[in-house]
Design a protein around this nucleic acid. Structure first.
Length: 569
RNA sequence: CGGGACGUAGCGCAGCUUGGUAGCGCGCAUCGUUCGGGACGAUGAGGUCGCCGGUUCAAAUCCGGCCGUCCCGACCA
């Protein structure tokens, strides 16, 4: 490709509305343009990179036995109704009505649709099967952001495994785990597998592949010592035991004027340390109020609460709902003596005595509260969010918490979809059994953005060869006859050698060409100018390191081809 | 959904307080001089000032409504 003819609209300024590095750079370097909130056009450079990611994924999924399909994006709402997910997905699902008033949805994932085809599997002899596609997903995200990191229309590789039993599913899951590890490595991503919440997908277990990045929207708890890693939505840590005094025979009410927060009560004379307080939160779970109890210094992890309770509709209660329920405002709430309301408590409160909590009367608290004696806890859960520095459950070392991008997610689904949709087989004893399923997803554009998030500097993007839109650019410094002729010769030879190469034949000054090549992030630049040619040399510059080698004209192509091929993987 | 901000040329912005000819930088076009790290000069093209309505002799500017976009919190590849 000739740069003079290529549509590579680079910009001098960062777009104002971009925050994330990948967002700024992909716009500025001419890879993407926004069409509307969370919807982007991939310009030729981005499309080339995405195709390379796609190629890597196809190779690795094919290598574990994947068969590639292409499923529709338009789905009848009815299929989603059968598994109950028409409601679960809520407003995140794009819905439309066709001319015959039929309810139609746009696919946001494809468990139901793949399973519909899988009903044609009738015998255990046909198992296992591993099916996948690389296609568009639509999700009406409440808040698209950060360029390609979180969008409403995107490309996903989604695969689905079909096995006779749990052991088969485990094997398919492990095969994907290994394939994903290879995929991310080839893309130049340092992806950490972490335990994750399964959310709306359901099933028995899931692993997310997380890439550490400032622009990431997930928090990962990680132990640097033993490599324990989990999404904070799932992560656990040790809670050092606390020895309480027995306390009084019954709770004692005391006045706490103006005390509204845990911190206020810590400071208040006659108050209590945060670890000796009971925090009382009110949540509406599917329309029903529930008290949620935690230690004063422990934050609630809402995803855990949602996972444990299975609530679909889920929100903190409004102030008026709280007042009506408990007769006091947030800041003076407690669970002592409360009946007729579901009370959920975090495990760390078990057996605690002599605690302090709100009295359900504004400006009053109770001290000397013993959980078992004074509060009717209906359900005990692990619902607290782990904090950096807490001891690792496996080795006791302090855990760290960092931001990360979820680049892939693999799920053990079990029979959640096969049973309601009737994907059954006869086993070797002639018995009807539901197929065990897994599902496995990688968002292509998000991975593209994740590569940028981890491969850039002040000059622009620095693509790994495996994802770069072009592997090399031949930069022609002067368009005089001799220089141009040599450059064309090199360009032709590189193309013949199978290199994805651009020739920058624009009538621009060298600085413009250097800056554009560095902004776009092409891994190797062959610089050809009259000065070098006078000495029979060209320069080969590596974008990532900035290192420039002077190479004899006659050896330059072979030199560059060898380096690029070594990095293709 | 709750909170905050913004919408003026392809991109980045000023003008709005105090109503009266729509401006700057970059980019773009033509010509000339330049040419190993975003050149210089000359000439020029390009804007329904987000949309609808109101006030006014007159609205980018004042008022009302709507739409769009971004950012911060609750959701996911």
């Amino acid at each position: 490709m000739r740069w003079s003819q290529a549509f590579i609209p680079t910009l001098r300024d960062d777009p104002t509305d971009a925050e994330a590095a990948s967002h700024k750079l992909l716009v500025r370097a001419g890879f993407i343009r926004q069409l509307m909130a969370g919807v982007y056009t991939l310009l030729p450079l981005a499309y080339r990179s995405r195709r390379k990611i796609q190629q890597v994924i196809e190779e690795e999924i094919d290598a574990i036995g994947g068969q590639e399909f292409l499923f529709p994006s338009l789905h009848p709402a009815e299929i989603w109704r059968k598994t109950g997910r028409l409601d679960v997905m809520g407003d995140e699902m794009f819905r439309l009505v066709d001319r015959k008033a039929g309810e139609v949805v746009l696919g946001m994932t494809h468990e139901e649709i793949f399973t519909t085809i899988a009903t044609e599997i009738t015998s255990y002899k046909q198992l296992p099967q591993l099916w996948y596609q690389i296609h568009t997903k639509f999700r009406d995200e409440p808040r698209p952001k950060s360029g390609l990191l979180r969008v409403r229309e995107f490309t996903m590789k989604d695969s689905y495994s079909f096995d006779l039993d749990q052991e088969g599913l485990d094997r398919a899951f492990d095969a994907h785990y290994a394939a994903y590890t290879r995929i991310f490595a080839r893309l130049g991503l340092d992806a950490i597998p972490v335990e994750a919440s399964s959310g709306a997908m359901g099933g028995s277990g899931s692993v997310e592949f997380m890439v550490r990045a400032e622009a990431g929207e997930d928090l990962v708890a990680h132990c640097p010592n033993c490599d324990y890693a989990a999404n904070v939505e799932k992560a656990v840590s040790e809670v050092p035991p606390i020895t309480d005094e027995a306390g009084p025979a019954a709770p004692e009410k005391f006045a706490t004027p103006g005390v509204r927060t845990i911190e206020d009560l810590v400071e208040f004379p006659g108050g209590a340390a945060a670890s000796r307080q009971i925090k009382t939160l009110v949540y509406m779970l599917d329309g029903e109020p529930a008290l949620v109890l935690l230690r004063g210094d422990h934050p609630l992890q809402e995803q855990k609460l949602q996972d444990r309770t299975g609530a679909l509709d889920f929100r903190p209660a409004h102030p008026d709902e709280i007042a009506e329920l408990l007769g006091a405002d947030a800041g003076s709430l407690g669970a002592v003596g409360v009946t007729g309301v579901r009370i959920l408590a975090d495990e760390s409160l078990r057996g605690r005595t002599n605690m302090t909590t709100g009295a359900n009367e504004n400006d009053f608290h109770l001290r000397g509260v013993s959980i078992d004696r004074d509060i009717t806890v209906d359900e005990w859960f692990d619902i607290r969010e782990v904090q950096a520095g807490e001891p690792c459950v496996d080795c006791g070392e302090p855990i760290e918490i960092f931001r990360a991008i979820e680049c892939g997610h693999i799920f053990k689904l079990g029979v959640k979809y096969s049973e309601p949709l009737g994907a059954m087989v006869l086993d070797e004893h002639g018995k009807t059994r539901p197929i065990y399923m897994g599902s496995y997803g990688i968002g292509l554009e998000r991975n593209l953005a994740a590569v940028v998030e981890t491969h850039f500097d002040e000059k622009g993007i620095a693509w790994p060869v495996t994802v770069a839109p072009y592997e090399a650019v031949v930069t022609v410094l002067r368009l005089d006859e001799e220089t141009l002729e040599t450059a064309e010769e090199m360009y032709g030879q590189l193309r013949d050698a199978g290199i994805d190469v651009l020739i920058d034949d624009r009538n621009e000054r060298p600085g413009v060409k250097f800056n554009d090549a560095e902004l776009v992030g092409i891994p190797y630049r062959m610089t050809i100018g009259p000065r070098g040619l006078a000495e029979d040399i060209v320069e080969i510059n590596e974008r990532a390191t900035g290192v420039t080698d002077r190479v004899a004209v006659g050896e330059a192509v072979a030199h560059l081809v060898a380096r690029i091929e070594a990095e293709r993987r």
